[in-house]
């Protein structure tokens, strides 16, 4: 599903991310750990095809991300990769359901109100589908962001610090949803975090700076 070979990314000649070898199969789950500034977010952006690496190869679904044109990469990301950012980036002008509809539209998928309802149902927010992000709590917003990442049924789910701004109860709930939904969809899940509450729930962990997979 996700396959990395000899990856290196530099900002002004200084390598920020260096990763010789990484494979994450369908249904597998990986937590990327490391202190702030260790390049976690940069790695996630590389995996999402938002950034192109200075060197090396990244394959998602057997597709070489770095060699696609920008437009093709945008389309591919929308269709096959679900992203949850630390700052969520929900569209404030759109309702919860519209935020999910936008994700389907921008990925070039048919509008599917039933699937949107279903996805919101699974994160426990179907009652809030007409609400706007500003009307929701932080925990609810986090789940909307999660639902948006899931609504296109991606093969790869990437989440950047999905729990670090939540209290224990919400962090628990979001972590469980993330892990369960990814497993149910047989999607590969990669999260970056320095939150022990989340990291402890992953069997596979990669601590950046060491460039090796911890069993």
């Amino acid at each position: 599903m996700l396959c990395i070979r000899d990856l290196e990314h530099c900002y002004t000649d200084v390598p920020v991310v260096r990763l010789a070898h990484l494979d994450v199969g369908a249904g597998e789950q990986l937590a990327i750990l490391g202190p702030s500034g260790s390049g976690k977010s940069t790695l996630l952006h590389l995996l999402a095809g938002v950034l192109t690496p200075t060197r090396g190869e990244i394959q998602v679904c057997e597709q070489p991300l770095a060699r696609m044109s920008e437009a093709a990469r945008d389309r591919f990301r929308g269709r096959h990769i679900g992203l949850v950012y630390q700052s969520l980036h929900l569209i404030a002008a759109l309702s919860v359901a519209e935020n999910l509809a936008l994700a389907r539209y921008l990925a070039g998928l048919a509008p599917d109100p039933a699937r949107i309802d279903d996805t919101l149902e699974r994160v426990g927010l179907v009652a809030f589908k007409a609400s706007y992000p500003a009307q929701l709590s932080q925990g609810q917003r986090q789940r909307v962001a999660l639902a948006r990442a899931l609504v296109n049924e991606p093969r790869l789910i990437l989440a950047d610090e999905p729990t670090s701004s939540l209290d224990d109860a919400n962090a628990e709930r979001v972590a469980t949803l993330l892990i369960e939904r990814a497993r149910a969809a047989d999607a590969a899940l990669v999260v970056t975090t320095h939150d022990r509450r989340l990291a402890d729930r992953f069997e596979r962990r990669l601590t950046l700076g060491e460039t090796r997979v911890v069993a």
Binding site: V50, G78, R79, H89, I91, L102, A103
Partner: peptide, 13 residues
Amino acid sequence: VDLAMMRSLGASR
């Protein structure tokens, strides 16, 4: 930020 998010959701430039 919204626009960047839309890009990462698959929107083209």
